[in-house]
Amino acid sequence: MTLDHAALAQHRPYLLRYALQQLRDEGQAEDVVQETLLAALQGNFSGQSSLRTWLTSILKHKIIDLIRRQSREAPLPGATDSDDDTLDDFDALFDRRGHWTSEDTPQAWQQPNAALESKQFWKVYEACAQLMPQRLALVFSMREVMDMDIDEICKSLSISATNCSVILYRARMSLRLCLDKNWFGNPEKVG
């Protein structure tokens, strides 16, 4: 199926937002989207999936390639196994025996499906995602959004599997806590 520029251009804003969420850098996001559109023009769209799905899968590969190249040239800040990969920053949630403190014990989230339909919820989510340090956010995206397995992520970023698990744990703790404080645990929001 031949693709024309106009058909592709329609998806450009979507792809750009997708890339920006993963890379957090406008220049880089522009570059990978450009490469994706070029590859799409030269590629062969079978029409079996939607055009957007096909473009997104090309984009994912371009993003992963970029991350690989970058981490070969300059490792992510703090990308070595270092002190800041300890789990200590969430210690305050647990008592000395390692059990949840009474005020931090996770309570059930009310109506998560309704939240996904709320514009206000997505603003809170965005703010919480931005709060994660870049390195946590990147590994989290690679795992959860781009669905890479741990080995691929370790290899791409030259980090150990243990380090990778710790980063993912911290990302999940951080995001869960932020959404809990600012949305699910806040009766006015969930209402």
Partner: peptide
């Protein structure tokens, strides 16, 4: 949630 945010970003 994170997959949905990426895929339905509009």
């Amino acid at each position: 949630i994170s997959q949905r945010r990426a895929e339905h970003n509009d």
